[in-house]
Write a protein that binds this DNA or RNA. Structure first.
Lengths: 224, 224
DNA sequence: TCAAAAGTGTTAGCGTTACACCCATGG
DNA sequence: CCATGGGTGTAACGCTAACACTTTTGA
Protein backbone atom coordinates (compact mmCIF):
# COMPACT_ATOMS: atom_id res chain seq x y z
CA UNK A 1 0.00 0.00 0.00
CA UNK A 2 2.75 2.44 0.87
CA UNK A 3 4.34 2.08 -2.56
CA UNK A 4 1.10 2.81 -4.28
CA UNK A 5 0.63 5.99 -2.31
CA UNK A 6 4.16 7.32 -2.57
CA UNK A 7 4.24 7.45 -6.33
CA UNK A 8 1.14 9.60 -6.61
CA UNK A 9 1.71 13.16 -7.55
CA UNK A 10 -1.37 14.19 -5.67
CA UNK A 11 -2.71 13.32 -2.25
CA UNK A 12 -4.96 10.30 -1.77
CA UNK A 13 -7.67 9.82 0.78
CA UNK A 14 -8.66 7.71 3.67
CA UNK A 15 -11.53 7.70 6.13
CA UNK A 16 -11.29 7.15 9.88
CA UNK A 17 -14.28 6.66 12.11
CA UNK A 18 -14.66 7.42 15.80
CA UNK A 19 -17.46 5.17 17.06
CA UNK A 20 -19.03 6.27 20.35
CA UNK A 21 -21.15 4.39 22.85
CA UNK A 22 -22.19 4.93 26.44
CA UNK A 23 -21.27 2.25 28.94
CA UNK A 24 -20.88 2.06 32.67
CA UNK A 25 -21.40 5.78 33.13
CA UNK A 26 -18.67 6.58 30.63
CA UNK A 27 -18.38 7.76 27.05
CA UNK A 28 -16.35 5.16 25.16
CA UNK A 29 -14.88 4.73 21.68
CA UNK A 30 -13.93 1.66 19.70
CA UNK A 31 -10.22 1.20 18.90
CA UNK A 32 -8.15 -1.44 17.13
CA UNK A 33 -4.56 -2.37 17.81
CA UNK A 34 -1.94 -1.76 15.13
CA UNK A 35 0.69 -4.28 14.00
CA UNK A 36 2.54 -2.14 11.51
CA UNK A 37 5.74 -0.22 12.24
CA UNK A 38 6.16 2.41 13.53
CA UNK A 39 2.86 1.95 15.35
CA UNK A 40 3.26 -1.58 16.71
CA UNK A 41 1.01 -2.10 19.72
CA UNK A 42 -0.49 1.34 19.47
CA UNK A 43 -4.23 1.74 19.18
CA UNK A 44 -6.01 3.45 16.31
CA UNK A 45 -9.42 4.49 15.13
CA UNK A 46 -10.68 2.12 12.39
CA UNK A 47 -10.21 3.43 8.84
CA UNK A 48 -8.88 2.75 5.37
CA UNK A 49 -8.28 4.18 1.90
CA UNK A 50 -11.10 5.55 -0.21
CA UNK A 51 -11.41 3.60 -3.44
CA UNK A 52 -11.84 5.24 -6.80
CA UNK A 53 -15.33 3.86 -7.22
CA UNK A 54 -16.97 4.61 -3.90
CA UNK A 55 -18.14 7.79 -2.23
CA UNK A 56 -16.38 8.97 0.87
CA UNK A 57 -19.32 8.14 3.09
CA UNK A 58 -19.61 4.64 1.65
CA UNK A 59 -15.90 4.20 2.21
CA UNK A 60 -16.22 5.14 5.85
CA UNK A 61 -19.03 2.61 6.32
CA UNK A 62 -17.15 -0.10 4.45
CA UNK A 63 -13.90 0.30 6.35
CA UNK A 64 -15.67 0.44 9.69
CA UNK A 65 -17.41 -2.81 8.86
CA UNK A 66 -14.29 -4.50 7.49
CA UNK A 67 -12.11 -3.58 10.44
CA UNK A 68 -14.60 -4.00 13.28
CA UNK A 69 -17.68 -5.82 12.02
CA UNK A 70 -19.85 -2.86 12.97
CA UNK A 71 -22.59 -1.82 10.54
CA UNK A 72 -25.86 0.09 10.57
CA UNK A 73 -24.83 2.82 12.92
CA UNK A 74 -25.43 6.53 12.66
CA UNK A 75 -22.51 8.28 10.94
CA UNK A 76 -21.69 11.90 10.29
CA UNK A 77 -18.70 13.62 8.72
CA UNK A 78 -16.47 15.25 11.28
CA UNK A 79 -13.48 17.01 9.80
CA UNK A 80 -10.74 16.42 7.24
CA UNK A 81 -7.19 16.10 8.49
CA UNK A 82 -4.70 17.05 5.84
CA UNK A 83 -1.25 17.66 7.28
CA UNK A 84 1.57 16.48 5.05
CA UNK A 85 3.23 14.15 7.52
CA UNK A 86 0.27 12.69 9.33
CA UNK A 87 0.85 9.27 7.75
CA UNK A 88 4.41 7.87 7.50
CA UNK A 89 3.34 5.52 4.68
CA UNK A 90 2.58 8.26 2.21
CA UNK A 91 0.61 11.35 1.49
CA UNK A 92 -2.78 10.42 2.88
CA UNK A 93 -5.49 12.84 3.86
CA UNK A 94 -8.05 11.54 6.30
CA UNK A 95 -11.72 12.40 6.26
CA UNK A 96 -12.81 11.63 9.79
CA UNK A 97 -16.33 10.52 10.65
CA UNK A 98 -18.03 10.12 13.94
CA UNK A 99 -20.45 7.27 14.52
CA UNK A 100 -22.85 6.60 17.38
CA UNK A 101 -24.43 3.41 18.63
CA UNK A 102 -26.82 2.66 21.46
CA UNK A 103 -25.44 -0.80 21.79
CA UNK A 104 -22.03 -1.33 23.30
CA UNK A 105 -22.73 -5.06 23.46
CA UNK A 106 -22.86 -5.39 19.68
CA UNK A 107 -20.65 -7.98 18.11
CA UNK A 108 -17.20 -6.73 17.16
CA UNK A 109 -14.48 -8.68 15.38
CA UNK A 110 -10.75 -8.57 14.85
CA UNK A 111 -8.91 -8.99 11.55
CA UNK A 112 -5.62 -10.37 10.30
CA UNK A 113 -4.00 -6.94 10.60
CA UNK A 114 -5.60 -5.97 13.88
CA UNK A 115 -5.65 -8.73 16.43
CA UNK A 116 -7.15 -6.72 19.25
CA UNK A 117 -10.16 -4.49 19.42
CA UNK A 118 -11.83 -2.82 22.36
CA UNK A 119 -13.83 -0.02 23.89
CA UNK A 120 -11.98 2.76 25.72
CA UNK A 121 -13.17 5.51 28.00
CA UNK A 122 -12.48 8.79 26.19
CA UNK A 123 -11.12 10.13 29.46
CA UNK A 124 -8.59 7.33 29.75
CA UNK A 125 -7.21 6.61 26.29
CA UNK A 126 -4.05 4.68 25.40
CA UNK A 127 -1.43 6.20 23.11
CA UNK A 128 -2.91 6.44 19.63
CA UNK A 129 -1.28 5.99 16.22
CA UNK A 130 -1.06 8.67 13.52
CA UNK A 131 -2.84 11.89 14.48
CA UNK A 132 -5.71 9.92 15.92
CA UNK A 133 -5.57 11.65 19.26
CA UNK A 134 -6.40 14.88 17.49
CA UNK A 135 -9.19 13.17 15.57
CA UNK A 136 -10.69 11.73 18.74
CA UNK A 137 -10.52 15.07 20.54
CA UNK A 138 -12.24 16.74 17.64
CA UNK A 139 -14.94 14.07 17.69
CA UNK A 140 -15.54 14.38 21.43
CA UNK A 141 -15.84 18.10 21.25
CA UNK A 142 -18.14 17.96 18.25
CA UNK A 143 -20.34 15.44 20.00
CA UNK A 144 -20.62 17.67 23.08
CA UNK A 145 -21.42 20.65 20.94
CA UNK A 146 -24.11 18.81 19.00
CA UNK A 147 -25.81 17.71 22.20
CA UNK A 148 -26.73 21.34 22.74
CA UNK A 149 -28.42 22.11 19.47
CA UNK A 150 -29.51 18.78 17.97
CA UNK A 151 -31.29 15.61 19.05
CA UNK A 152 -28.19 13.54 18.30
CA UNK A 153 -28.26 12.05 21.79
CA UNK A 154 -30.96 9.62 20.70
CA UNK A 155 -28.41 7.86 18.52
CA UNK A 156 -26.71 6.75 21.74
CA UNK A 157 -29.91 5.36 23.26
CA UNK A 158 -32.11 2.38 22.42
CA UNK A 159 -35.40 3.04 20.64
CA UNK A 160 -37.06 2.92 24.04
CA UNK A 161 -35.51 4.61 27.02
CA UNK A 162 -36.38 6.28 30.29
CA UNK A 163 -36.05 9.95 31.12
CA UNK A 164 -33.30 8.98 33.50
CA UNK A 165 -31.29 7.23 30.78
CA UNK A 166 -31.66 10.29 28.61
CA UNK A 167 -30.60 12.58 31.41
CA UNK A 168 -27.66 10.35 32.27
CA UNK A 169 -26.48 10.47 28.66
CA UNK A 170 -26.35 14.25 28.89
CA UNK A 171 -24.65 14.11 32.26
CA UNK A 172 -21.93 11.76 31.06
CA UNK A 173 -21.09 13.77 27.99
CA UNK A 174 -21.37 17.18 29.60
CA UNK A 175 -19.62 16.01 32.74
CA UNK A 176 -22.08 17.57 35.16
CA UNK A 177 -25.18 16.62 37.12
CA UNK A 178 -28.49 18.07 36.03
CA UNK A 179 -31.72 18.73 37.91
CA UNK A 180 -34.30 16.05 37.22
CA UNK A 181 -37.32 18.33 37.20
CA UNK A 182 -35.80 21.06 35.08
CA UNK A 183 -34.38 18.51 32.66
CA UNK A 184 -37.74 16.88 32.10
CA UNK A 185 -39.42 20.22 31.64
CA UNK A 186 -36.98 21.20 28.90
CA UNK A 187 -37.20 17.91 27.06
CA UNK A 188 -40.99 18.00 27.10
CA UNK A 189 -41.02 21.65 26.04
CA UNK A 190 -38.84 20.77 23.04
CA UNK A 191 -41.37 18.10 22.13
CA UNK A 192 -38.66 15.59 21.30
CA UNK A 193 -39.97 12.52 23.08
CA UNK A 194 -43.25 10.66 23.44
CA UNK A 195 -44.11 8.92 26.66
CA UNK A 196 -45.21 5.36 25.90
CA UNK A 197 -47.89 3.45 27.79
CA UNK A 198 -45.26 1.28 29.31
CA UNK A 199 -43.19 1.01 32.47
CA UNK A 200 -39.88 -0.52 33.31
CA UNK A 201 -39.99 -3.64 35.48
CA UNK A 202 -37.66 -5.74 37.55
CA UNK A 203 -35.87 -2.96 39.38
CA UNK A 204 -35.95 -2.54 43.14
CA UNK A 205 -37.63 0.82 42.94
CA UNK A 206 -40.59 2.55 41.42
CA UNK A 207 -41.02 1.74 37.69
CA UNK A 208 -40.14 4.43 35.19
CA UNK A 209 -42.09 5.63 32.24
CA UNK A 210 -40.71 4.39 28.90
CA UNK A 211 -40.19 7.01 26.19
CA UNK A 212 -39.25 7.08 22.54
CA UNK A 213 -37.88 9.81 20.25
CA UNK A 214 -40.47 11.61 18.13
CA UNK A 215 -38.16 12.02 15.14
CA UNK A 216 -36.12 9.32 13.44
CA UNK A 217 -33.03 11.20 12.30
CA UNK A 218 -30.87 14.00 13.60
CA UNK A 219 -32.31 17.49 13.41
CA UNK A 220 -31.39 20.87 14.83
CA UNK A 221 -33.42 21.88 17.83
CA UNK A 222 -32.51 24.97 19.80
CA UNK A 223 -31.66 24.34 22.70
CA UNK A 224 -30.58 22.19 25.58
CA UNK B 1 -5.07 16.40 -15.53
CA UNK B 2 -7.95 14.10 -16.24
CA UNK B 3 -5.65 11.29 -17.36
CA UNK B 4 -3.58 11.54 -14.27
CA UNK B 5 -6.60 11.25 -12.07
CA UNK B 6 -8.35 8.47 -13.93
CA UNK B 7 -5.54 5.99 -13.59
CA UNK B 8 -5.39 6.24 -9.83
CA UNK B 9 -6.77 3.33 -7.94
CA UNK B 10 -7.72 5.61 -5.10
CA UNK B 11 -9.42 8.97 -4.93
CA UNK B 12 -7.41 12.18 -5.13
CA UNK B 13 -8.18 15.50 -3.58
CA UNK B 14 -8.95 19.05 -4.41
CA UNK B 15 -9.84 22.14 -2.43
CA UNK B 16 -12.52 24.69 -3.29
CA UNK B 17 -12.95 27.96 -1.48
CA UNK B 18 -16.06 30.07 -1.04
CA UNK B 19 -14.87 33.61 -0.40
CA UNK B 20 -17.44 35.91 1.21
CA UNK B 21 -17.63 39.67 1.44
CA UNK B 22 -20.31 42.20 2.26
CA UNK B 23 -21.15 44.80 -0.35
CA UNK B 24 -24.05 47.05 -1.11
CA UNK B 25 -26.20 45.52 1.59
CA UNK B 26 -25.65 42.03 0.20
CA UNK B 27 -23.62 38.97 1.05
CA UNK B 28 -21.48 38.15 -1.98
CA UNK B 29 -19.09 35.41 -3.08
CA UNK B 30 -16.24 35.39 -5.57
CA UNK B 31 -16.68 33.16 -8.65
CA UNK B 32 -14.62 32.43 -11.75
CA UNK B 33 -15.88 31.47 -15.18
CA UNK B 34 -15.05 28.04 -16.58
CA UNK B 35 -13.74 27.35 -20.08
CA UNK B 36 -13.62 23.57 -19.94
CA UNK B 37 -16.33 21.24 -21.24
CA UNK B 38 -18.87 20.36 -20.02
CA UNK B 39 -18.87 23.52 -17.93
CA UNK B 40 -18.17 26.15 -20.60
CA UNK B 41 -19.43 29.56 -19.46
CA UNK B 42 -20.57 28.26 -16.11
CA UNK B 43 -19.25 29.84 -12.96
CA UNK B 44 -17.34 28.02 -10.25
CA UNK B 45 -15.80 28.51 -6.86
CA UNK B 46 -11.98 28.78 -7.13
CA UNK B 47 -10.09 25.57 -6.37
CA UNK B 48 -7.52 23.04 -7.50
CA UNK B 49 -5.83 19.72 -6.77
CA UNK B 50 -3.95 19.13 -3.53
CA UNK B 51 -0.31 18.36 -4.22
CA UNK B 52 1.56 15.54 -2.57
CA UNK B 53 3.82 17.93 -0.71
CA UNK B 54 1.43 20.46 0.75
CA UNK B 55 -1.15 20.34 3.49
CA UNK B 56 -4.78 20.69 2.58
CA UNK B 57 -5.03 24.13 4.13
CA UNK B 58 -1.94 25.35 2.29
CA UNK B 59 -3.42 23.99 -0.90
CA UNK B 60 -6.64 25.91 -0.37
CA UNK B 61 -4.68 29.12 0.15
CA UNK B 62 -2.44 28.47 -2.82
CA UNK B 63 -5.24 27.70 -5.25
CA UNK B 64 -7.27 30.68 -4.10
CA UNK B 65 -4.29 32.92 -4.73
CA UNK B 66 -3.42 31.34 -8.08
CA UNK B 67 -6.94 31.53 -9.44
CA UNK B 68 -8.04 34.88 -8.05
CA UNK B 69 -5.03 36.75 -6.70
CA UNK B 70 -6.59 36.83 -3.25
CA UNK B 71 -4.31 36.17 -0.27
CA UNK B 72 -4.23 36.86 3.45
CA UNK B 73 -7.87 36.27 4.18
CA UNK B 74 -9.43 34.33 7.01
CA UNK B 75 -10.06 30.70 6.00
CA UNK B 76 -11.75 27.81 7.70
CA UNK B 77 -12.50 24.27 6.61
CA UNK B 78 -16.13 23.76 5.69
CA UNK B 79 -16.97 20.24 4.62
CA UNK B 80 -15.63 17.50 2.36
CA UNK B 81 -17.65 16.57 -0.68
CA UNK B 82 -16.98 13.02 -1.75
CA UNK B 83 -19.59 11.75 -4.16
CA UNK B 84 -18.22 9.52 -6.90
CA UNK B 85 -19.46 11.50 -9.87
CA UNK B 86 -19.05 15.03 -8.65
CA UNK B 87 -16.23 15.67 -11.12
CA UNK B 88 -16.52 14.41 -14.72
CA UNK B 89 -12.73 14.51 -15.12
CA UNK B 90 -12.03 11.82 -12.60
CA UNK B 91 -12.42 10.69 -9.05
CA UNK B 92 -11.82 13.89 -7.16
CA UNK B 93 -12.92 14.58 -3.63
CA UNK B 94 -13.23 18.22 -2.69
CA UNK B 95 -12.38 19.69 0.67
CA UNK B 96 -14.32 22.91 0.73
CA UNK B 97 -13.18 25.96 2.65
CA UNK B 98 -14.90 29.17 3.42
CA UNK B 99 -13.00 32.43 3.46
CA UNK B 100 -14.01 35.89 4.63
CA UNK B 101 -12.72 39.30 3.74
CA UNK B 102 -13.66 42.80 4.86
CA UNK B 103 -12.55 44.22 1.58
CA UNK B 104 -14.62 43.66 -1.53
CA UNK B 105 -12.49 46.22 -3.33
CA UNK B 106 -9.36 44.12 -3.10
CA UNK B 107 -7.55 43.39 -6.31
CA UNK B 108 -8.68 40.25 -8.10
CA UNK B 109 -7.20 38.78 -11.27
CA UNK B 110 -8.15 36.40 -14.02
CA UNK B 111 -6.02 33.57 -15.40
CA UNK B 112 -5.46 31.82 -18.69
CA UNK B 113 -8.07 29.22 -17.82
CA UNK B 114 -10.57 31.59 -16.26
CA UNK B 115 -11.05 34.78 -18.20
CA UNK B 116 -13.76 36.21 -16.03
CA UNK B 117 -14.05 36.67 -12.32
CA UNK B 118 -16.62 38.48 -10.24
CA UNK B 119 -18.61 38.92 -7.07
CA UNK B 120 -22.15 37.53 -6.91
CA UNK B 121 -24.96 38.05 -4.46
CA UNK B 122 -25.57 34.69 -2.78
CA UNK B 123 -29.28 35.28 -3.29
CA UNK B 124 -28.87 35.68 -7.02
CA UNK B 125 -26.30 33.18 -8.23
CA UNK B 126 -25.69 32.01 -11.79
CA UNK B 127 -25.64 28.31 -12.66
CA UNK B 128 -22.57 26.77 -11.04
CA UNK B 129 -20.27 24.01 -12.28
CA UNK B 130 -19.69 20.66 -10.54
CA UNK B 131 -21.53 20.40 -7.21
CA UNK B 132 -20.60 23.97 -6.38
CA UNK B 133 -24.15 25.02 -5.71
CA UNK B 134 -24.21 22.52 -2.87
CA UNK B 135 -20.86 23.77 -1.63
CA UNK B 136 -22.01 27.38 -1.65
CA UNK B 137 -25.24 26.54 0.15
CA UNK B 138 -23.29 24.69 2.80
CA UNK B 139 -20.98 27.67 3.19
CA UNK B 140 -23.81 30.17 3.52
CA UNK B 141 -25.57 28.11 6.12
CA UNK B 142 -22.37 27.52 8.06
CA UNK B 143 -21.62 31.23 8.03
CA UNK B 144 -25.09 32.07 9.36
CA UNK B 145 -24.75 29.46 12.06
CA UNK B 146 -21.34 30.71 13.14
CA UNK B 147 -22.63 34.25 13.47
CA UNK B 148 -24.66 33.03 16.42
CA UNK B 149 -21.95 31.44 18.50
CA UNK B 150 -18.65 32.94 17.38
CA UNK B 151 -17.17 36.36 16.68
CA UNK B 152 -16.57 35.41 13.04
CA UNK B 153 -18.44 38.49 11.85
CA UNK B 154 -15.35 40.62 12.49
CA UNK B 155 -13.62 38.85 9.60
CA UNK B 156 -16.11 40.63 7.33
CA UNK B 157 -15.41 44.07 8.78
CA UNK B 158 -12.41 46.37 8.67
CA UNK B 159 -10.25 46.63 11.77
CA UNK B 160 -12.22 49.74 12.69
CA UNK B 161 -15.96 49.84 12.29
CA UNK B 162 -19.07 51.46 13.72
CA UNK B 163 -21.78 49.73 15.70
CA UNK B 164 -24.05 50.31 12.75
CA UNK B 165 -21.72 48.51 10.35
CA UNK B 166 -21.56 45.60 12.76
CA UNK B 167 -25.31 45.52 13.13
CA UNK B 168 -25.80 45.76 9.38
CA UNK B 169 -23.49 42.77 8.87
CA UNK B 170 -25.75 40.73 11.14
CA UNK B 171 -28.85 42.02 9.44
CA UNK B 172 -27.62 41.15 5.96
CA UNK B 173 -26.63 37.63 6.86
CA UNK B 174 -29.61 36.88 9.07
CA UNK B 175 -31.99 38.61 6.73
CA UNK B 176 -33.83 40.56 9.40
CA UNK B 177 -33.75 43.98 11.00
CA UNK B 178 -32.53 44.27 14.57
CA UNK B 179 -33.20 46.80 17.31
CA UNK B 180 -30.34 49.25 17.66
CA UNK B 181 -30.45 49.58 21.43
CA UNK B 182 -30.82 45.89 22.16
CA UNK B 183 -28.10 45.01 19.69
CA UNK B 184 -25.64 47.37 21.29
CA UNK B 185 -26.49 46.09 24.74
CA UNK B 186 -25.75 42.50 23.73
CA UNK B 187 -22.50 43.30 21.97
CA UNK B 188 -21.25 45.30 24.93
CA UNK B 189 -22.38 42.60 27.37
CA UNK B 190 -20.37 40.03 25.41
CA UNK B 191 -17.36 42.29 25.76
CA UNK B 192 -16.35 41.72 22.15
CA UNK B 193 -15.61 45.27 21.06
CA UNK B 194 -13.77 48.31 22.40
CA UNK B 195 -15.01 51.79 21.67
CA UNK B 196 -12.13 53.86 20.37
CA UNK B 197 -11.63 57.57 21.06
CA UNK B 198 -12.55 58.35 17.54
CA UNK B 199 -15.53 59.40 15.48
CA UNK B 200 -16.50 59.04 11.87
CA UNK B 201 -16.48 62.23 9.80
CA UNK B 202 -17.77 63.47 6.49
CA UNK B 203 -21.28 62.14 6.73
CA UNK B 204 -24.36 64.32 6.69
CA UNK B 205 -25.41 63.23 10.16
CA UNK B 206 -24.13 62.87 13.66
CA UNK B 207 -20.68 61.17 13.78
CA UNK B 208 -20.53 57.60 14.99
CA UNK B 209 -18.23 56.09 17.53
CA UNK B 210 -15.49 53.93 15.99
CA UNK B 211 -14.98 50.46 17.48
CA UNK B 212 -12.52 47.63 17.14
CA UNK B 213 -12.70 43.93 18.00
CA UNK B 214 -11.13 42.94 21.32
CA UNK B 215 -9.85 39.59 20.06
CA UNK B 216 -7.79 38.94 16.95
CA UNK B 217 -8.99 35.52 15.86
CA UNK B 218 -12.24 33.63 15.83
CA UNK B 219 -13.46 32.30 19.16
CA UNK B 220 -16.68 30.80 20.43
CA UNK B 221 -18.85 33.20 22.36
CA UNK B 222 -22.34 32.18 23.43
CA UNK B 223 -24.55 33.93 22.13
CA UNK B 224 -26.00 36.39 19.71
C1' DT C 1 -39.65 -2.53 56.43
C1' DC C 2 -35.90 -0.70 53.92
C1' DA C 3 -33.31 1.03 50.01
C1' DA C 4 -33.40 3.00 45.67
C1' DA C 5 -34.92 5.65 42.02
C1' DA C 6 -39.35 7.89 39.96
C1' DG C 7 -42.49 11.39 39.80
C1' DT C 8 -44.00 16.04 40.46
C1' DG C 9 -44.75 22.54 41.13
C1' DT C 10 -43.63 26.85 42.72
C1' DT C 11 -40.96 30.94 43.22
C1' DA C 12 -37.35 34.31 42.57
C1' DG C 13 -34.15 36.25 39.63
C1' DC C 14 -32.27 37.18 35.37
C1' DG C 15 -32.12 38.13 30.63
C1' DT C 16 -34.78 39.54 26.50
C1' DT C 17 -37.69 42.33 24.15
C1' DA C 18 -40.33 46.23 22.94
C1' DC C 19 -40.34 50.85 22.41
C1' DA C 20 -39.35 56.92 21.20
C1' DC C 21 -37.02 61.02 21.56
C1' DC C 22 -33.18 64.26 21.19
C1' DC C 23 -28.41 65.11 19.06
C1' DA C 24 -24.71 66.23 15.75
C1' DT C 25 -23.38 66.84 11.28
C1' DG C 26 -23.25 68.13 6.04
C1' DG C 27 -25.56 70.10 2.51
C1' DC D 1 -33.03 74.73 8.35
C1' DC D 2 -33.58 70.25 6.90
C1' DA D 3 -32.49 65.44 6.26
C1' DT D 4 -30.04 61.73 7.96
C1' DG D 5 -28.44 58.43 10.91
C1' DG D 6 -26.32 58.33 15.97
C1' DG D 7 -26.94 57.83 20.65
C1' DT D 8 -29.43 56.49 24.75
C1' DG D 9 -33.03 53.93 29.26
C1' DT D 10 -36.93 51.68 31.20
C1' DA D 11 -40.57 48.49 32.03
C1' DA D 12 -43.03 44.08 31.15
C1' DC D 13 -42.53 39.58 30.13
C1' DG D 14 -40.85 34.99 29.72
C1' DC D 15 -37.46 31.68 30.63
C1' DT D 16 -34.22 29.51 33.77
C1' DA D 17 -32.63 27.87 37.95
C1' DA D 18 -33.13 26.48 42.55
C1' DC D 19 -35.26 23.55 45.50
C1' DA D 20 -37.92 18.61 48.65
C1' DC D 21 -41.21 15.42 49.50
C1' DT D 22 -44.10 11.43 48.32
C1' DT D 23 -44.61 7.06 45.57
C1' DT D 24 -43.63 2.51 43.91
C1' DT D 25 -41.16 -1.42 43.59
C1' DG D 26 -37.94 -5.61 44.81
C1' DA D 27 -35.40 -7.62 48.19
Amino acid sequence: MSNIIKKYEYAVMATDTVLFALDDGKLKILLIKMNKKPFVDMWAVPGGLVRGDESVEVSAKRTLKEKTGVANVFMEQLYTFGNVNRDPFGRVVSIAYMALTPNIDMEIKTTKDHKEIGWFDVKDLPVLAYDHEKIVKTAVSRLSAKLEYTNIVFQLLSKEFTMNELQTAYEIIRGEKLDKRNFQKKILALDLVKKLDKKTTGQAHRPANVCTAKHEGVVNVEIL
